[in-house]
Every structure is written in C-alpha cells, then in structure tokens.
C-alpha cells in the first residue's frame, strides 16, 4: 500500500496546477523511491517529468509499485478543498480503485477526506537519455516568465541564442521584433536573482512560446529555473524542488526556418 504524507498541501496543489493545462490523464507511478509522473501533451510536442522523492514526504511508505491513473481535472477539484498549509496524506491499496486524500488543518481539528476514482491509463513511457547540454542557464523563474510573456505579445516563437556574450531571447512578429539579453550576474544578497550561464559551445534554437508560457505556471514552485540547451535536442526547463524532487518540462525545437 501507499501512504505518503506531505507537510504542506501547497506543493501538490502547485505542481498539479502547473501541469494540468498541458496533460490531462496521467499515471502517478509510486514506488519506494517516491512518486513519479511522465506524460506528453496531446500533440506530442512537450513532455512533463515530475519526481517527488520519498524524502519530500514524512512518512513515506510504498511496498509495491503502484500506478495511480488520475484525471488532473478531477484532482484539481479535490485539491481545491485543501488549504495551502494543510497536511496532505495520499493513500492507496496495492491494487486500488481509488486514491484517498486526507487534508488536516494544523490549526484546527478539521479533517477532510476525499476519494478519487482511478483510471486505467495506457501511457507511452519515453526513455530520456542522459544529456551533456551545450548550455545551461539558471535564472530567476519570474524573469523567465516575464520574458516569455512579453515576447509572446509579438510572436508565437522565440529563438534562444546562447553564446559567451550571454543568452538572447529574440522574436519576430507582424508588428515588429524584440529581444531580451541576459548576462551572468551574481547577487550576493539575493541569490535567487542570480543569472548563471554555463556554456561549452554556442547554441541557437527556436521554440514555441505558447508552451514556454505554459511551463512558467510552475514559477511559484521555485525562485530559479534552469534551461538546458543543445543544438537539435529538446529544451529542458527544470524547476528544482526541495529534497532533490523536481518538475521538468521538455520541449521539442522548431524545425527549419
């Protein structure tokens, strides 16, 4: 059986909120290392990969591999009943028909309990190769969100060019063009404001802004976002969570010009 207790419901609420517009029905794969999720969007352009390590829960117990097939719209409805600060416990039997969610208020004696019916989801699982990326950029997640939103007002796609000069986000649209260039920057007082660019070779790739703006819904999960790029491979956008847990998005590049 599975029993996983999260100190704050907020974490799961934010994760589900960040991915629910991209993917609808997903398997939450539970085993003794934690709860993982991998799903592609309907058009197979983007892939979500979430890992909530067992250390992110206290306690965490999962004796066998259990796949919880959950509709994220249903999960969102139930999670709306949880206060951000509530303690959240997920429970399921070994061959479950439902997943049980319990929300406990730390301040009152209120205990809410919900069951969500599970679905049988036959999901393709993709093997993601270990990649040495040509460029890795760490930057404030709010800054990345703002750049994507600003450029989407002009164009549906953005080129991300990374060179030793810095990283340049550029777009061209009907009304004109725009670009934002960032250079490495260290803020001793506010490390969340740092921009770090780790480059082994120059990279230039073009991506759909609609997807990037969607990924940025995860911005509230982490002050920093990491962008990993290599020519002709999908972009990795990573939001690191506590205890080595993460929410990652992969986005296939645009082809040709």
């Amino acid at each position: 059986m599975l029993e996983a207790r999260l100190e704050q419901a907020n974490l799961l609420k934010k994760v589900v909120d960040a991915i629910k517009d991209l993917v609808q029905d997903c398997n939450f794969d539970c085993n003794d290392s934690g709860i993982a999720l991998q799903a592609m969007d309907n058009s197979h352009v983007a892939l979500v990969s979430m890992m909530l390590k067992s250390e992110s829960f206290s306690p965490f117990r999962c004796d066998r591999n259990i796949a919880l097939g959950i509709n994220l719209t249903s999960l969102t409805k139930v999670l709306r009943a949880a206060q951000n600060e509530d303690i959240l416990t997920l429970k399921a039997e070994d061959a479950p028909d439902v997943v049980n969610l319990v929300f406990e208020s730390a301040e009152s004696d209120r205990i809410s309990e919900y069951d969500i019916k599970l679905m049988d989801i036959d999901q393709e699982h993709l093997g993601i190769p270990e990649t040495e990326y040509a460029a890795t950029i760490s930057m404030p997640s709010a800054e990345f969100q703002r750049i994507c939103r600003d450029l989407m007002a002009l164009s549906e796609s953005v080129s991300i060019e990374c060179s030793k000069e810095g990283v340049k986000f550029a777009c061209q649209g009907d009304i004109g063009s725009g670009s934002v260039t960032l250079r490495s920057h260290t803020n001793v007082d506010k490390p969340e404001m740092n921009v770090e660019i780790d480059l082994t070779e120059p990279v230039s790739l073009t991506f759909s802004l609609k997807y990037l703006v969607g990924f940025c819904k995860a911005s509230s999960l982490s002050g920093q976002v990491k962008l990993c790029l290599s020519n002709e491979v999908p972009l990795l956008v990573e939001y690191a969570l506590a205890n080595n847990s993460y929410l990652r998005f992969y986005l296939a590049p645009k082809i040709g010009d």
């Binding site: 197979h44 352009v45 393709e124 993709l126 491979v233 992969y250 296939a252 082809i255």
Partner: peptide, 14 residues
Amino acid sequence: PAGQGSIKSFFNQS
C-alpha cells in the same frame, strides 16, 4: 514558418 518537431522523435520509447 518553422515546423514543429515531435518530442517522440528525440526520446526512445521504452
């Protein structure tokens, strides 16, 4: 306009 690649062409099906 540039075409859009599929994520499946980059990652192996396992």
